[in-house]
Nucleic acid binder design. Structure first.
Length: 536
RNA sequence: GCUCCUGUGGUGAAAUGGAUAUCACGGCUGGCUUCGAACCAGCUGUUCCAGGUUCGAGUCCUGGCGGGAGCACCA
């Protein structure tokens, strides 16, 4: 890596100038006019040396000597030093893009990372929020993998509780088939209505208690059947979204009782009793066991953590992806977990990734679908706009979710996200498709040995691994999205001006170059979990 | 009320304390006998306000104002 060579040279030069311990960065400059890399080292050193920054820059520039791969350096602005790669170094970038490990880094090498995401309510259709969590979680998992980590994908479905009881009531009352996903959905809706209206509130609560206790064979059987149907359907839908199978699924029916037992054993130590409930007093008080002695969401997290650390005792980082409204909740729960399991949490990272709300902006869609927008109906709607291409629809959806930093709400307009013009998943997919189309057609052309040179695109490709590394380090996939859009735009612009295949002949060097772009776009999309179509 | 998040062109976003704040949409203008027009080329800004820290602030700090979320037995 040329960047490391630059860093080494600067460090060495600074030591010679008596400023060896200052912090500096070598980064991508804001504009390509400022070279391929820039450093603020002289600005930082000037402060320590109490000298004029531009003088320090000149001194530093002289002290750098020759750096492999660097053709030119220049002092600019307040005292930046800009670096330009040599043509040979840029050719190396194109070559590197053909290698297996292109775009990977070693940020998390040797680390075991647990990523829990999606976490649906079984019996209920996958909700838009679940969809967002799935998209973010999958990309984060892939970013960790690209950074050398051993990733375990985890799912934590809710398989017991009021939702399930409503569904079981609906199944029984309507005599519906628990093995049919459509009928299962109807059963939940019916149960929910009956509960809300008061028509069967007591009955459903009775079912709920019986399911927890396992005291009614018929109800329990309906529950089991419904769960199996629901899970199967869930896995099929997630596969369509490009989620690789989960390594493990933990269920609330396991985590609840386990968590309750652990919490009960720690009353008077980590937890205390208050108004008949068992609470944890952290930043503020949270209830872990309610006054009936039943585990709340909090205690279930305790059980879940126990299950996770039994399955993967040597994990280094444990991540939970959920809606951002749970941020505060997780802060306190993680705090409690550290007190509860010091041996299992010391030196480990427990992280929560908050996901944004997806706000649909078209009236058309919400009116057609009503208030409840399921992940599946959204996907169907977007697919229709995407000329019936589900892979393009998935790309549009995922791009929209991943293109911005976490914490902000996402406005999603199915029309605009699939607009024929830029800044969308299909835009990047389209650029990729063009490279692939070029490569296909080149296969039928005569390959000739001919010079080919393009500086612009290799200068951009140079920064691909850094974009992935930064996204992985910050847990912010949008850095990759931004980068890919820029690369796709640069490629499209080049493509509009240049012809590759002329009179049935194509230059071997040009072909090699297009392959490099194809690899970069494809690997970038892949790390986001966005489909990489052959044609559109 | 307390706590956390957030405020950037008409709209949606980007910018690890750095250089002339970068893209996209919409709008206007032009481009398909051409390797794919889901594309390309061109035209349009008080970073909410006021102070402060810094060689340098959209970014950090303080105080306002606006938006969102969370604050005891739901998940």
């Amino acid at each position: 890596m040329v960047r490391h060579e630059i860093e080494k040279a600067i460090q060495h030069a600074l030591e010679g100038m008596g400023a060896g311990d200052i912090a500096f960065v070598v980064e991508r400059p804001g504009s390509m006019e400022h070279g391929d890399y820039a450093t603020n080292a002289a600005l930082a050193a000037a402060k320590v040396l109490k000298k004029n920054p531009r003088e320090v820059a000149a001194e530093l520039q002289n002290a750098l000597g020759t750096i492999e791969g660097i053709e030119k350096t220049e002092i600019a602005g307040a005292g930046f030093i800009n670096f330009w790669l040599s043509n040979e170094a840029l050719a190396d970038v194109v070559r590197a893009a053909h290698e297996e490990g292109w775009g990977t880094n070693e940020l998390y090498i040797g680390k075991k990372v647990l990523v829990e995401y999606t976490s649906p309510n079984l019996f209920k259709p996958l909700h838009i929020g679940n969809l967002v969590g799935n998209i973010v979680g999958e990309s984060v998992a892939r970013l960790f993998e690209a950074s050398g980590a051993d990733v375990k994908r985890l799912n934590y479905p809710s398989d017991i509780g009021l939702t399930i009881a409503k569904g079981v009531w609906g199944l029984q009352n309507g005599n519906l088939n628990a093995e049919d996903i459509a009928q299962l959905g109807k059963a939940y809706v019916a149960g929910n209505e009956a509960y809300e209206s008061g028509e069967a509130k007591e009955k459903i609560e009775e079912i709920n208690r019986a399911l927890y206790a396992g005291s009614n064979a018929e109800w329990s059987a309906l529950r089991e059947k419904g769960i199996a149907t629901s899970l199967k359907h869930l896995h099929a839908l997630l596969a369509r979204l490009g989620t690789q199978g989960f390594d493990k699924e933990f269920f609330e029916s396991e985590s609840g009782p386990l968590g309750a037992r652990i919490v009960r054993g720690e009353v008077g130590k980590v937890f205390e009793e208050s108004e008949g409930a068992v609470v944890y007093k952290g930043e503020h008080t949270r209830v872990f066991l309610n006054s009936q002695g039943l585990p709340t969401y909090e205690a279930k997290e305790v059980g879940l953590f126990q299950l996770k650390s039994e399955a993967y005792p040597s994990f280094d980082i444990s991540i939970t992806v959920t809606g951002k409204e749970q941020t505060d909740f997780f802060r306190i729960v993680f705090d409690a977990l550290r007190k509860l399991f010091p041996g299992k949490t010391d030196g480990k990272d427990l992280l929560h990734i908050p996901t944004s709300f997806l706000k649909l902006t078209t009236g058309k869609m919400s009116s057609r679908l009503g208030n409840v927008i399921t992940g599946e109906s959204l996907l169907a709607e977007v697919t229709e706009v995407a000329r019936n291409r589900e892979d393009v629809a998935v790309g549009a959806l995922k791009y929209t979710v991943l293109k911005q930093g976490s914490g902000k709400d996402i406005s999603f307009d199915p029309e605009k996200s699939l607009s024929l013009e830029g800044d969308s998943g299909p835009y990047v997919q389209y650029a990729l498709v063009r490279t692939r189309s070029l490569l296909r057609q080149s296969a039928e052309a005569k390959i000739v040995e001919k010079e080919f040179s393009n500086i612009e695109l290799p200068r951009l490709m140079l920064h691909f691994p850094d974009a992935v590394a930064r996204a992985a380090g910050e847990l912010e996939p949008h850095h990759v999205v931004t980068y890919l859009t820029e690369l796709a735009a640069a490629f499209n612009s080049w493509y509009a001006q240049e012809r590759l295949i002329v009179d049935g002949e194509v230059s071997d060097a040009a072909l090699f170059f297009v392959q490099a772009i194809e690899h970069t776009l494809a690997k970038g999309l892949d790390v986001l979990g966005i489909p990489t179509p052959q044609e559109m």
